[in-house]
């Protein structure tokens, strides 16, 4: 578009900007939605991350994403502190589904190995045992309350667990898992 005159603003690196938008779009965030954000702050008013005092809570995350500030998310771990509570999705007047942005940023960061160790541990447990959270001593706890030592889940069902692992080998995990799938 011809503007007719030069304006004195900071110029964003357009290629860089578009590149990040493309990454986010591929990772599941609608760029049309992202661009509709009016920074009204309703999400911040309900966000547990904001209430808990994290530096980067949802409104700032959306703002940084609209400015194409990709590197911020690789340095700051706040997106991994999101509770996935969806208050922001429920309350957003522009219906941009801010939580989907958190997930998209996590997906981009994961591919840069910018993720917390409990994500790797959880993922590995999920693949190997069928459960992300396996706290030692579960056999005794189950016995104590009169239940069989193993639950009827994949943990206690080897045939299904193997089939589940075969299924996961057909997902993106085959390409991005930070551990061998065998």
């Amino acid at each position: 578009m011809e503007t007719g005159r030069e304006t004195n603003v900071i110029k964003l690196d357009e290629e860089f900007f578009k590149e990040f938008e493309k990454e986010l779009q591929e990772a599941g965030m609608s760029i049309k939605d992202l661009r509709s954000c009016i920074q009204c702050g309703k999400c911040a008013g309900t966000c547990p991350m904001a209430l808990a005092g994290l530096e980067f809570f949802i409104k700032k995350i959306v703002h940084a994403a609209t400015l194409g500030l990709r590197e911020i998310f690789l340095d700051d771990s706040s997106v991994w502190g999101c509770q996935s509570c969806n208050r922001c999705v429920e309350i957003c007047p522009m219906e941009i589904k801010p939580y989907e942005l958190i997930q998209a940023i996590r997906r981009v960061s994961f591919r840069e190995y910018a993720m917390p160790s409990n994500t790797i541990d959880g993922l590995q447990n999920y693949y190997k045992l069928g459960h992300a959270v396996v706290v030692k001593g579960y056999e005794n706890r189950r016995k104590k309350v009169g239940l069989p030592e193993l639950p009827p889940t994949a943990l206690g069902n080897e045939e299904m667990r193997k089939k589940f692992q075969e299924m996961l080998k057909n997902t993106v995990l085959a390409e991005v898992a930070p551990f061998p799938l065998d």
């Binding site: 997930q103 997906r107 993720m115 994500t119 959880g122 993922l123 995990l173």
Partner: peptide, 12 residues
């Protein structure tokens, strides 16, 4: 759980 597969891939 949200911190594992949903944070890696939507289809996964």
């Amino acid at each position: 759980a949200f911190g594992i597969m949903p944070s890696i891939d939507l289809v996964g």
